[in-house]
Design a protein around this nucleic acid. Structure first.
Lengths: 210, 210
DNA sequence: ACATTTACTGCACGTTTGTACAATAAAGCC
DNA sequence: GGCTTTATTGTACAAACGTGCAGTAAATGT
């Protein structure tokens, strides 16, 4: 019985990289960034800690990858409804609000990861670039919805006013995301969504739904 | 010439504590939380690194003190206009908006410090307490302004609707604070204030100013 | 001027960190 | 089945971390 139990499994570099990234995010969510050491992460992933440096040149590189991965996932969940042109406009807006202000986007763990990375942004050009890309991606996906909403009721499409409303709607979502993630007991998802719908429809000067 | 230049200056515990706290916040703002080691902080303050443990039982205690100090300072700047009952209501609201969305409250360095501490909140009961206190303090100071604004124009003071509007206004300020601190080039203070005034007056169903 | 207090310094200790490198073994190819 | 490739492991190491403690000196009261 020579090969009854292999000592480890050999994975493709792509799969292993994703495993290590997801282990990193789990550790950060559970214990914070300072606890995300190579030893802790590799234990979470179930591999030797020296394996990390075989797939990532430095630990910093793993952090870059984890940040981009996390942001991309959040944006995808949050905006998946925005481009679904089959559904009516109001439905799409409400779906975006709901997706943004419910788990797993509005969530203590996600906030932990986000806050941990945010503090690296000003000191690191690559982190800053990742941040800019995801933020502008979010705003670019949201603005067409707002333009459409204003046009649909014959509102004057002054570009300056459109941008003003886009920034304001974005701020409402960001602010509620922040507070809902930090104080979930005080502000459950249903309450956040209710407030967001009211505020955004007020800003867009649309008739309140329901 | 025995005592030409003393090797160090002896300060009162209270003064030295504040000096160490402020040095901590400067280091965090400049290099992030991970760079805020006892050696780095004490170098910033111009003292031996072992002095920290003479004034704070542990390094964690210094962090608690720095967090509370930072939050208290931000809330004070942001809300100083709220209680100034001599000025007319609209002026007070606009002043609060301006104070909140200008430096030093809306500022990259302040965001750095805040983000660094936020990630400790879920894992630490004392940090959580400090956070709750400052957050509720902010909301309690803002809500009377909103109640007064709604009452002033004979609006129906349904408590549920008042709280809804208070949460929404809070979210606008939080969201703009966040985005303005992260992307100051894209969103300068003047733009933030402009958007905030528009959005908050829309939410409160007040006539737009100017 | 001297004694007392304690803010302050300087150094050493054990732990944990990211990194480096040689040895090992799993998987694919012939 | 043997050979090659390389994903994976295990160990070692220097640097940096928070902490402990004995000694020093600045300020204060007498």
């Amino acid at each position: 019985m020579p090969e009854s139990k292999p000592k480890f499994r050999r994975e493709s570099p792509e799969q292993r990289r994703v495993q290590l990234i997801e282990a990193t995010l789990r550790v950060i969510a559970r214990k914070g960034v300072s606890a995300a050491t190579v030893r802790e992460i590799s234990a979470e992933a179930g591999v030797a800690f020296s394996l990390i440096r075989h797939h990532f040149k430095t630990k910093e590189d793993l952090m870059y990858a984890a940040y981009a991965f996390h942001m991309h996932k959040m944006a995808q969940v949050s905006l998946s409804a925005a481009t679904d042109t089959a559904r009516p406009l109001k439905e799409r807006i409400k779906q975006c609000i709901t997706d943004t202000l419910s788990p797993p986007v509005t969530d203590g763990a996600a906030l932990q990861v986000w806050a941990g990375f945010i503090q690296m942004v000003p000191h690191d050009a690559r982190m800053k670039q990742i941040h800019m890309d995801t933020y502008l991606g979010f705003r670019d996906a949201l603005e067409p919805l707002i333009v459409e909403a204003l046009r649909s009721q014959g509102n004057h499409a002054d570009p300056a006013r459109i941008e003003q409303k886009a920034i304001a709607c974005n701020a409402v979502l960001d602010g509620l995301w922040l507070e809902g993630s930090m104080l979930p007991d005080m502000l459950p998802a249903a309450r956040l969504i209710d407030v967001a719908e009211f505020a955004i429809f007020a800003i867009l000067e649309l008739a309140q739904p329901d």
